[in-house]
Nucleic acid binder design. Structure first.
Length: 425
RNA sequence: GGAGAGGUGGCCGAGCCGGCUGAAGGCAACCGCCUGCUAAGCGGUUGUACGGGUAAAACUGUACCGAGGGUUCGAAUCCCUCCCUCUCCGCCA
């Protein structure tokens, strides 16, 4: 959420940001609504001030055993006038809130302008895609022939966009989760969290998934709970409604969770395999930072995610999302894309964002400035470190062998009970 | 699921037979004093949001004592509904 005062005073800037984002949201009604609200508020507050003053007077008279009946009688009219003046105000405020909650964050000045994916500049590339001297198979073929991935039975159990991992397939996911968490906690300074996999609507509002993106979420019927689409939701909300000591910043947390997404609107995209699932595993990195160092933190956080790919020997590149491709709440986002031989291209495996104070304002995440003693909104960041399912896919495909087996990346072997190759058993 | 207790400021905690309570007291933080340094001690300051006001302050209005509604001239205090937490019992990984 943007600051109301900021929108009022910089409506041009906000409209420019909407244009850059290729958003069709209009601020047409904002000015009128805002003025109407302020006019009404002033009227109501003036009457209330009158009532408060009279009430105080009544209290004083009664204490002094004087008659206050006349004043009380007159105040009945004022009270009625207040009720009158208040009608319509809740509606105006609700409309203001709705408008404000649906305005996306303003892209950071360093974000390149562009319409979509094709305009995202590549800022660095690591590793060289391997040359294959045999026909490359995709992870579905590899996984099914090794009997470690089973899509048919997953469909029987649940439905489309689910996957059953078996044997070494399940083991790889577990190994990756442990590997990633160990690196981030042991070497990158994050504290491990294991949060609830459902969260209430207030939390989803806090990180910006609600009210705009309810259609992408699984809601638990008859409750106020939604299944989390990312650990960002429960982990960032750990500090919701809190005023933090400046000294604890940057607060760095990591968490493994499964993620649940409806993937509504992606019919026909990535239907094959485990690229796009209703449920997938992810290790998330979250940082709560001071504004001054937040974009520096974004660089670090991104490099922490990249480190996992480096150790696994998986070629990747990093792109900056352009204004038209950025998420609703983000001020700046880097996507890390891993090389998938079967597709002959890089595919997103991590998305690292700085949200400036956009989430913090919604979620009331603040800190006390040590020098001024004032409370300030913190900046929030997060990134995948990494999407585990897609990492498994990348390993299967990049490390496939002509005989159908898959070599286990060296860094992962300690987590795989020492085995160096996955073969059909 | 049954019974009981409770939700107050950064934290703890009074107030809860309605007005003098935006809220005692303590802690914490900050600023002074004191001090060789630290500690102790002494004095002072410190909520949030939205308006008005100002060059910026000062200043000022309103709202906020879990959420929403009601009674009343007036509600942290009374009434209703809901949410949450804790304790005991039951059930259970």
């Amino acid at each position: 959420m943007l600051d109301l005062k900021f929108v009022r005073e910089n409506i041009g800037t906000v409209e420019e940001a909407l244009r850059k984002r290729r958003s069709d949201l209009s601020l047409e009604g904002f000015r009128g609504l805002d003025e109407k609200r302020r006019t009404m508020l002033t009227a109501v507050e003036t009457l209330r001030a009158e009532r408060n003053a009279a009430s105080e007077e009544i209290g004083r008279l009664r204490r002094e055993k004087q008659d206050a009946a006349g004043l009380m009688e007159r105040m009945k009219a004022v009270s009625a006038a207040i009720k009158e003046a208040e009608t319509g105000l809740p509606d105006i405020e609700a409309r203001m809130d709705a408008l404000l909650l649906n305005i996306p964050n303003i892209p950071d000045a360093s974000v390149p302008d562009g319409a979509g994916e094709e305009d995202n500049p590549v800022i660095r590339t690591w590793g060289t895609p391997r040359e294959f001297d045999f026909p490359v198979r995709d992870h579905v073929d590899i996984g099914e022939s090794l009997d470690i991935l089973d899509f048919e039975r997953a469909t029987k159990i649940a439905g489309g966009r689910f996957c059953l991992l078996k044997g070494a397939g399940a083991r790889i996911e577990r190994a990756l989760i442990n590997f990633m968490l160990d690196v981030h906690t042991g070497e990158h300074g994050y504290t491990e969290m294991l949060p609830p996999f459902m969260a209430n609507s207030a939390s989803f509002l806090g990180t910006g998934q609600l009210p705009k993106f309810e259609d992408d979420l699984f809601k638990v019927e008859g409750t106020d709970y939604y299944l989390i689409p990312t650990a960002e939701v429960p982990v960032t909300n750990i500090v919701r409604d809190e005023i933090l000591d400046e000294g604890v910043l940057p607060l760095k947390m990591t968490a493994y969770t499964p993620c649940f997404r409806k993937e509504a609107g992606s019919y026909g995209r990535d239907v094959r395999g485990m690229i796009r699932q209703h449920q997938f595993n992810k290790v998330e990195l979250v940082a709560i930072s001071k504004p001054e160092s937040a974009f520096e933190e974004l660089e670090k956080l991104t490099s922490h995610a990249e480190e996992i790919l480096k150790r696994l020997g998986l070629p990747y590149r990093v792109v900056t999302l352009c204004t038209g491709d950025m998420g609703f709440s983000s001020a700046k986002t880097y996507d890390i894309e891993v090389w998938l031989p079967s597709q002959g291209r890089y595919r997103e495996i991590s998305s690292c964002s700085c949200f400036s104070d956009f989430q913090a304002r919604r979620a009331k995440i603040r800190f006390r400035d040590g020098t001024t003693g004032k409370t300030r909104l913190a900046y929030t960041l997060n990134g995948s470190g990494l999407a585990v399912g897609r990492t498994s896919v990348a390993i299967l495909e990049n490390y496939q062998q002509p005989d159908g087996s898959v070599t286990v990346p060296e860094a992962l072997r300690p987590y795989m009970g020492g085995i160096d190759r996955i073969v059909r058993r």
